[in-house]
Deep mutational scan, measured.
Amino acid sequence: MTVRVDGVDYEFSSLEEAVRFALKMAKSKGAEVQLHNGTFHVE
């Protein structure tokens, strides 16, 4: 599972870890999280 934040990809071994990271980053940026074909994008 890959989480992309500001064009940088972060790899996670589990969906749970990836979701937690994506939500944490989105909250800190006041951004939204989108899921596309198994890849999260924080914008």
Rank of each mutant, 00 (worst) to 15 (best):
L35D: 03
D6K: 03
E16H: 07
E17I: 03
L35M: 11
T2E: 01
S13F: 10
T2S: 07
V19N: 03
S13P: 10
A26S: 06
V5Y: 06
T2Q: 04
T39Q: 12
Q34E: 08
L23R: 10
V5S: 02
S13T: 11
G7S: 03
F12A: 00
H36M: 11
S13D: 11
D6F: 11
K27S: 12
T39D: 08
L15P: 07
D9H: 06
K24H: 11
F12N: 00
F21M: 01
G30P: 03
G7Y: 03
H36T: 07
D9L: 12
G30W: 08
A31Q: 06
V8P: 00
D6S: 06
E11Q: 12
A18H: 00
V5M: 05
V8G: 01
V42L: 05
K29R: 12
S28K: 13
Q34S: 13
L15W: 13
E43G: 14
F40N: 07
F40D: 08
G38C: 15
K27W: 13
Y10G: 00
L23M: 10
E16A: 12
M1V: 12
G38T: 05
M25N: 02
L35E: 04
N37A: 06
E43M: 14
T2H: 09
T39W: 11
S28F: 12
E17R: 05
H36V: 13
V5N: 01
E11V: 13
L23S: 04
E11T: 13
V33K: 02
A18M: 03
V3I: 05
K24A: 13
E43R: 11
F21C: 08
A22I: 07
A31G: 12
D6I: 02
T2F: 14
L15H: 09
T39A: 12
M25E: 03
Q34M: 12
G7I: 02
S14Y: 02
V5F: 07
V42E: 08
M1Y: 15
Y10V: 02
Q34W: 15
G30Y: 07
D9S: 10
T39G: 10
V3L: 02
G30F: 07
S28D: 13
A31M: 13
R4Q: 04
A31S: 08
H41F: 14
E43L: 14
E43A: 11
M25P: 00
R20V: 07
H36W: 11
E43W: 13
G7F: 03
H36A: 06
G7D: 04
S14I: 03
V3A: 02
K24C: 15
G7V: 01
Y10M: 02
S14E: 03
S14L: 04
E17H: 04
E11D: 07
V3Y: 04
N37D: 12
D6A: 06
H41G: 08
K29C: 15
E11K: 14
Y10S: 01
T2I: 11
H36L: 13
E32G: 09
A26R: 05
V19R: 11
V3H: 01
A22R: 02
F12D: 00
A18D: 00
S13R: 10
A31D: 04
L35T: 05
K29Y: 12
M25H: 03
V33Y: 03
E11I: 13
N37M: 07
R4E: 02
S28G: 10
D9G: 04
E11G: 07
M1H: 13
F12S: 00
G7L: 02
A22S: 02
F12M: 01
L15S: 06
Y10R: 01
L15K: 08
T39F: 12
A22Q: 02
T39V: 15
V33G: 03
V8E: 05
E32K: 14
E11P: 09
E17K: 05
E17Q: 07
T39Y: 12
R20G: 03
T2G: 02
K24F: 14
F21G: 00
Y10A: 00
Q34K: 13
K29D: 07
V3C: 10
A22H: 01
S13E: 09
E17M: 06
V42Q: 07
G7M: 03
V33D: 02
S13H: 09
D9N: 11
K29I: 13
F12I: 01
D6C: 15
A26L: 09
R20N: 07
D9M: 11
V33P: 03
D6E: 06
F21W: 06
V42R: 05
Y10E: 00
S14G: 03
L35V: 09
A22T: 02
S28T: 11
V42W: 08
H41R: 04
V33M: 05
F40L: 15
E16P: 04
V5K: 01
E11L: 13
E16S: 08
G38I: 10
F40R: 07
A22K: 02
V8Y: 06
V33I: 11
E17S: 05
M1R: 10
G38M: 08
T2Y: 13
A18S: 01
K24Y: 14
V19Y: 15
L15G: 03
L15E: 05
F40T: 09
H41I: 14
F21E: 01
A22W: 05
S14Q: 03
A26E: 04
M25D: 01
T2V: 10
E32L: 13
E43N: 11
S28M: 13
D6G: 07
G38W: 09
M25T: 03
V42H: 06
G30D: 07
E11H: 14
G7W: 03
K24S: 10
V5T: 01
L35R: 04
A18G: 02
A22Y: 08
R4F: 04
K29E: 09
S14R: 04
D9P: 06
S13I: 07
D9Q: 06
A18L: 04
L23N: 06
A26G: 04
V3D: 00
E16T: 07
E32M: 13
E17D: 10
E17L: 06
L35W: 13
T2L: 09
Q34A: 09
G30M: 06
H41N: 06
V19D: 01
D6M: 08
S13L: 10
H36D: 05
E32C: 15
V8H: 06
L35S: 05
F21P: 00
A31V: 12
L15Y: 13
K24V: 09
